[in-house]
């Protein structure tokens, strides 16, 4: 079987397999997003994170390498790079905090949105997740879907150990069940431009 453009792969994995995705999320994954919407909307309405969670746990946020102070005023653009982190130690860690007391110390790089782009439409952004947020946000991000190019996805699957495969059940490609072993075969990924993978953790 070969994958078609825009295919969707649904996996069910054991909770212990969550950490297999941490390196990917640290390096950054491509996720669908409504570009033109605010970062607050992305986190709350699209990733479905609770408002209290966002304000208490996601204390450091970057947009295109620039620290963000107010997620309600920052708009997503096609290809934006958003990075999310928990509270950081050190003066510089405190300096990077969203709206933190020490924001002045990095005043020159604080994110300011000059492009007033209000047309909301479907697009993609790159999302990075760091440190304490990895165990907390990996599941919601993967549940909603992450877009891969087939080579990267194949490399990821080939890098997983037996424990990962033991916990991997219910693999659906475009809603049809396939054997998990096929996820390591060139054949499956041969003629494809993108795959959206959605993962449910037991």
């Amino acid at each position: 079987m070969t994958l078609q453009k825009g295919s969707t792969l649904n996996l069910t994995l054991g909770g212990e397999q969550l950490s297999a995705f941490f390196p990917l999320l640290q390096e950054g994954v491509t996720v669908p997003a409504r570009v033109g919407s605010t970062l607050a909307d992305f986190l709350g309405e699209q990733l479905l994170l609770d408002t209290d969670y966002i304000s208490s746990r996601i204390s450091t946020i970057f947009m295109n390498n620039r620290p963000v102070d107010d997620i309600k005023t920052v708009l997503l653009h096609e290809g934006s790079v958003v990075a999310l982190s928990g509270a950081m130690p050190g003066l510089v860690g405190a300096t990077m905090r969203s709206g933190g007391y020490y924001a002045a110390l990095r005043g020159g790089i604080t994110y300011t949105d000059s492009d007033i782009d209000t047309a909301i439409r479907d697009g993609i952004i790159k999302l990075k997740v760091y440190n304490l947020l990895l165990p907390e946000l990996t599941a919601p991000v993967l549940k909603r879907g992450v877009v891969f190019c087939p080579d990267d996805l194949l490399a990821f699957f080939r890098g997983q150990d037996q424990e990962f495969w033991n916990g991997c059940t219910d693999v659906l490609l475009n809603q049809s069940e396939i054997d998990p072993a096929e996820l390591r075969s060139d054949e499956l990924f041969n003629r494809l431009s993108t795959v959206t993978i959605q993962v449910k953790f037991r």
Partner: peptide, 16 residues
């Protein structure tokens, strides 16, 4: 959980 080296990703992300 991570020690002070938890800063590497974040400072790198900030371009600092």
């Amino acid at each position: 959980a991570y020690g002070t080296n938890v800063l590497t990703n974040v400072i790198n992300e900030a371009g600092g």
